[in-house]
């Protein structure tokens, strides 16, 4: 059986519906383990003190902020090429989740920056890129909500997602270029495996897994909601048509 058979809205709902609560509980459990482990059972790093523990929120949310956009990009491409409605709705459903992840990454970055850099906000290339990503999410979501016709909205937001991806990537490198060398010493590349000791890395992996599960659960849940909204819309339209044509 082809994977595309799940592109049928009803089949998608029937299949994913029962998963959602399980995924929610699983992500809650994994996150609880990862965060408790990370917060209370890891040593304090010599350079950072206890402030380092915010990476257990900061790094996974930053990871999901980017992955959510990638997922939207893939879903948009599938919509443009194969016209599966579920794909477009999944992209729509993922956007607010990705935006919140970006926001979490920004806020935790600022909170971490306060003891590290002595300031809430530094125009560090990485933080700046996430700020720009946040703006891209805003524009994407605003475009979805501004267009009344759902198919037209799906088409236009998909085009925006494609073009936006290219520009977001360019912005990433432009920002690096723009602020090279200013925060070289302070650029905290803790999320690279080679820089992190295993005692920090393993609970971090658990937290990342928890965030991935949370993201999948939320996107499935929200996609289901979007599908039901479209179904209500379709049923209403059919009822209206039946009224206008005398039997």
């Amino acid at each position: 059986m082809s994977i595309w058979s799940y592109a049928n809205p009803r089949k998608f709902l029937d299949t994913t519906g029962p998963w959602v609560p399980w995924l929610m509980w699983l992500s809650a459990a994994v996150l609880a383990v990862g965060l408790v482990w990370g917060f209370f059972f890891t040593p304090e790093a010599e350079r950072f003190g206890s402030s380092v523990k915010i990476i257990y929120l900061h790094v996974p949310s930053a990871l999901m902020a980017i992955n959510a956009w990638l997922m939207m990009l893939v879903a948009s491409l599938i919509w443009l090429i194969r016209r599966h409605h579920v794909s477009a709705l999944a992209a729509r459903a993922a956007a607010p989740v990705g935006m919140v992840m970006t926001l979490i990454a920004l806020v935790t970055g600022a909170i971490w920056g306060q003891p590290m850099w002595g300031t809430w906000w530094a125009w560090d290339p990485r933080l700046t890129s996430f700020l720009i990503l946040f703006l891209f999410y805003l524009g994407y979501i605003a475009l979805w909500t501004a267009i009344p016709d759902p198919d037209q909205a799906a088409d236009l937001t998909s085009v925006l997602c494609l073009v936006g991806s290219v520009f977001a990537l360019m912005s990433r490198y432009a920002v690096n270029f723009w602020n090279q060398g200013l925060h070289q010493g302070a650029s905290l590349s803790l999320d690279k495996q080679e820089n992190v000791a295993d005692v920090f890395w393993v609970p971090l992996l658990v937290c990342m897994a928890g965030f991935v599960l949370l993201f999948v659960a939320l996107v499935l849940l929200r996609t289901g909601t979007e599908i039901r909204l479209r179904r209500i819309r379709a049923l209403r339209a059919r009822a209206r048509r039946a009224e206008t044509v005398p039997a």
Partner: peptide, 12 residues
């Protein structure tokens, strides 16, 4: 009213 076609069809 029950004609086929249109993007709504997939959701009925």
């Amino acid at each position: 009213p029950e004609a086929r076609g249109g993007s709504d069809e997939a959701f009925l």
